[in-house]
Design a protein around this nucleic acid. Structure first.
Lengths: 163, 163
DNA sequence: ACTGATATTGAAAGTCATTCGCATTTAGGT
DNA sequence: ACCTAAATGCGAATGACTTTCAATATCAGT
């Protein structure tokens, strides 16, 4: 998958700028992390925040080098790691494939992934969340986080499969 | 973690031999897979079936070489992969750490892992399973499998932490 | 039991995602 | 503008597997 060609600098804001929930500037986010504001971090953050969800480090790296060829993948990995450690992005690693990240400002959700075409659907289910807490409590665990990934065949692929 | 020193050739059968549910010989399992019966496969299978759950390929490799030093890790990886492809073992890969495997004859369950000491507790929760099916159905997916891993701090570590 | 076609093996080399070491460059307080 | 710690990019290193391939072992047919 390659997101390099996708619009990333969404000035065409689908989210209206006028609301109170004004978009936090990337600069502030970087400062809040106690880090120096560099071009590469601004660039990465812009892509992370305005590009596709579920990107790999490689996706970011390719998109970034499109705009500034003089950037190392170590920088991308380093910053992504920091972001994920501070919970600004969520890192999902599965099955030996490259890790996928997504900007974590959105509400908590889990994933339903098509094993055939890799389409990813996000869902929320508070009932499941509640039950997870219950299970943890049963065993005396203090829950910190969880990974719930459902795999199956999406409607499209099911149709094609039959054809 | 090292399971090399653990009893693996459980002739001290905790499961009585006399029941109908007689343990399937490893030879048969290998033949059922359409593979040739070799010493290394018998050895690996014995360890996989009678050793710890949640072992890494490295664990197996170390235990195996204890009994037969002339065995390559490629063989361990190869056979584990075959077993997991044929659903004889379940492979769990998380967070860039080495994959963990477990013999899959037992009932389906999920895991609750201590982020502090890595203790793993297994649990079953049919209610959660039902809800997962429901979610999949909502999106028109045909569910094939799922990964549910809860992370938290176990009772022991919580106590120590306070101390 | 012998034989030969074919599967399996171990050792070493190869992958691939990610991380590290370090000399050089840069941000940002003074 | 100056200085120093922080950040960067390069390439080398790591770690978990996977592949390659020549040597070896299995087992179906005799």
């Amino acid at each position: 998958m390659n997101i390099a060609s996708l619009p990333v600098n969404s000035q065409q804001d689908s989210v209206p700028k006028s609301t109170r929930g004004e978009k936090i500037p990337s600069k502030k986010i970087i400062r809040d992390l106690g880090l120096k504001v560099t071009n590469q971090r601004l660039l990465i953050l812009d892509i992370v925040r305005n590009g596709l969800s579920h990107f790999t480090a490689q996706d970011i790296f390719e998109t970034v080098t499109d705009r500034n060829p003089d950037i190392g993948f170590a920088t991308v990995y380093r910053f992504l790691r920091t972001l994920s450690e501070q919970s600004y992005v969520t890192e999902v690693r599965m099955g030996g494939m490259p890790a996928r990240y997504e900007w974590a400002s959105k509400r908590h959700h889990d994933h339903l992934t098509c094993t055939s075409c890799s389409e990813i659907v996000e869902f929320e289910n508070t009932e499941i969340e509640r039950l997870q807490e219950k299970v943890a409590k049963q065993f005396g665990f203090q829950l910190t986080h969880h990974v719930l990934e459902l795999y199956g065949v999406c409607p499209n692929c099911r149709a094609n499969r039959k054809a």
